[in-house]
Structures are given as C-alpha cells and as structure tokens.
Design a protein around this nucleic acid. Structure first.
Length: 258
DNA sequence: ATGGCTATGTAGCATAGA
C-alpha cells in the first residue's frame, strides 16, 4: 500500500498535474492540501472516472484538504473534534484498515503574530486529539503539510531562518510532541542531504538551486512504521510548467491481509 | 538588498503562502 501526501496549491490549477502523477506514481492513498476549492466544485467526477474514491473538506480561496483512495473510504471525519475552526485543514478516513489523517498545519506567518499563536493552538489541539485516536487505531498514518522543518538539516540555510516560522523552537517542540505520542517520522534517519526537501520557494530560482525545506511529512503509528519502506520525494511534478511549490512525498507500507 | 513568485478574488491591487 503506497501512501502519499501533496500540497497542490490549488487543485483547480494542478488537476492536470495530479491526474498525470497518479498514473506515474501509482499511489493507493493520496492526501492533498491547499485544494482551495469549495466542496461544490471539487472535481469528484473526474477522479471517479479514473477509479478514485474521494473525501474532501474545502472552502473558498484558502486551505482545503482531500483524501483520494483506490478503495472506498470509511468513517470520514472532518476537522479536529472540539476545536472549532472555520478553516478546512483536517480530514480523516479509514482505508483498508488504516486510519488516514490528512493535515494542513497553519503557516504561522511570523513569530508572535496572531497567526503564529493560532498555529501553536492548532497543533496543541491536533496533539490532544491524535493521542486518543492512536488508542483507537493501531494502524494510523498522519500525512500532510506540517509547515515545520524539524531539524536544521531540513532547511537550506538554517542561519537565514534563525528562529523564525517553520523552525522556531515552539513549533519544533510541537512536532516532537506528536512523535512522542507514538507517531514515527517515516523519513529515514540515515538519509543524507540529497533529495530530502519537499518545498521550494517560487522566487529566486529556488528549485533549480535546491534551496528548499522539508516540511511535508508522513507520520506512522508503531505497527505501520516498523514495516514502512521507500520514503521518497517525487520531484518530477515540480519540474513542470506552473508547478505546485511542494513536491509529493511517498512511503510504502505492507497491505494488511485482513 | 529580507525582495525576487504564484493563486485567488476581483477588475488594479490586496492577501496569503513558506
């Protein structure tokens, strides 16, 4: 079972890229972020024609998340229970016995801004919710755009970022608290510096110069993490005309026979 | 030099992203 996450930065613009990529990369489950589409205009028909089951939670202009799967999605839930939020940033579903949670973590804009405080509160709510979810679901995957680079090596120029957003101690601590729940980063510890970034700024020819960040992550519960393999970033869609600024991240986990 | 793009909503720029 191949799991993937991709911040498409407008599904309207990126739908052709997505359809091509689904054929090329042959994932079984795909979490999308920043669809920027209201539910009434989500391209469910086009995806259904290609054999995809879909669940989505969108809004106008901003945010929006979706899960695509080769098999039917069960127990679809939207948002973080108990955290009242008009921003559509979370959708979850069970596919083939795996609880899949798709997250679009707030950006934070600037340290100490209202949006930064919202980001930290949001992460706190996410952690509280996932703690319980992990007790209910042994096989669980939390995929998405976390807007956090966990280590200095995940940033092309750590000095330039200092303690700003995406790398600030409070954000990194929030990420570590997710790991402490029993979620494991499927990113291999032994990975070098090559091909680990998942986002490159549109400006400054950042992609060509590989000035990027690793901010999209696939976290797995223990039983899944022990058997996961093949973590990788697929940079091919980032090379196309009018690309998303994020590249898809994939990992393979074993199919549960039952 | 702290910018440089891109997408959206909306009709010349403002907001947001990371």
């Amino acid at each position: 079972m191949r799991l993937a996450t991709w911040n498409v930065n407008s599904l309207k613009v990126r739908l052709p890229h997505l359809l091509d990529w689904l054929e090329q990369a042959s994932p079984d489950v795909v979490c999308l972020q920043e669809t920027k589409l209201e539910d009434s205009v989500f391209p469910a028909d086009v995806l259904a024609e290609k054999g995809w089951h879909v669940a989505f939670a969108g809004q106008k202009t901003y945010n929006g998340v979706a899960i695509l799967a080769r098999e039917p999605l069960k127990q679809v839930d939207r948002g973080i229970p108990g955290f009242d939020d008009p921003q559509q940033r979370v959708i979850s579903a069970t596919i083939r016995g795996i609880r899949v949670v798709c997250v679009y973590v707030p950006n934070g804009q600037a340290v100490d801004s209202d949006k930064y405080r919202y980001k930290l509160a949001w992460l706190d709510a996410l952690q509280g919710w996932l703690a319980g979810e992990l007790n209910r679901h042994e096989r669980m995957a939390v995929l998405g755009d976390y807007n956090i680079a966990p280590r200095d090596q995940d940033v092309y120029d750590p000095a330039a970022f200092g303690e700003g957003i995406l790398v600030s101690p409070a954000e990194r601590q929030a990420f570590q608290r997710l790991l402490q729940l029993g979620l494991n980063d499927s990113f291999p510890e032994e990975a070098g510096e090559e091909a680990i970034f998942t986002w490159w700024d549109y400006r400054m020819a950042s992609f060509r110069r590989n000035l990027g960040l690793r901010i999209d992550h696939i976290l797995l519960s223990g039983s899944l993490a022990r058997q996961a393999s093949g973590w990788r970033v697929d940079r091919t869609p980032r090379r196309l005309d009018r690309p998303s600024d994020h590249a898809p991240v994939l990992v393979d986990v074993p199919d549960s026979a039952d």
